[in-house]
């Protein structure tokens, strides 16, 4: 474990040390090439802006209006009918929030961890869930927006299927590993 953490800590400084050095040795004009490459960053950043704003507005209105909570409340009876305990249903808001908003999900996860304790079942599940899936809507909007794709085909379904499997796997593995 600590080995992987050390790799993460050293990875970026080492990349910024080794790559320019190697490039210089291979006669690349390092500073000028860096600047030329960096120019692309600006263009991409500007081109994704409208897509970001469009998606964020819709998501924020949905979450802040309380619609997300109502949706979660509708799902509670369904889940308890399926035999899930009331502890597990407390994860529903997080599960819905996770693909929509990264910061929103982090907020919900932190609140769950605070409420139930980090070493409780819900706390461990929330930690695993938050750490394991990505903000699918954000990634799709930004990535497709940056190159002007309008028709996503089955990409959204794929992302949501993966998110759902991630959710089930998070719950299952925490039950298996700790209880």
């Amino acid at each position: 474990m600590s080995v992987i953490a050390e790799i993460s800590r050293w990875a970026i400084p080492m990349l910024f040390f080794v790559i320019p050095l190697l490039a210089y040795l291979r006669r690349v004009p390092v500073y000028e090439s860096f600047v030329a490459g960096a120019e692309d960053g600006f263009k991409t950043g500007v081109s994704i802006l409208p897509f970001l704003i469009g998606m964020l507005v819709s998501i924020r209105v949905f979450i802040d209006s309380g619609a997300l909570e109502i949706l979660a409340r509708f799902l509670y009876p369904l889940f308890s009918w399926l035999g899930l305990s009331s502890d597990l249903t407390s994860l529903i808001p997080l599960a819905i929030m996770r693909p929509l908003s990264g910061s929103g999900a982090l907020g919900v996860a932190s609140q769950l961890i605070e409420q139930y304790g980090p070493d409780s079942m819900v706390g461990r599940m929330a930690s695993t869930l938050q750490g394991s899936t990505d903000t699918t809507f954000f990634v799709l909007t930004v990535y497709f927006g940056s190159v002007g794709i309008r028709k996503y085909r089955y990409a959204l379904k794929l992302g949501l299927i993966a998110d759902f499997v991630g959710l089930v796997a998070s719950v299952w593995i925490v039950l298996k590993a700790f209880y």
């Binding site: 990349l15 910024f16 790559i19 320019p20 490039a23 690349v28 390092v30 090439s33 860096f34 600047v35 030329a36 490459g37 960096a38 120019e39 692309d40 960053g41 600006f42 991409t44 950043g45």
Partner: peptide, 12 residues
């Protein structure tokens, strides 16, 4: 972030 990493990537 993009400018930083794409700059480095160009070197690579």
């Amino acid at each position: 972030m993009m400018s930083l990493w794409l700059g480095l990537m160009r070197l690579a």
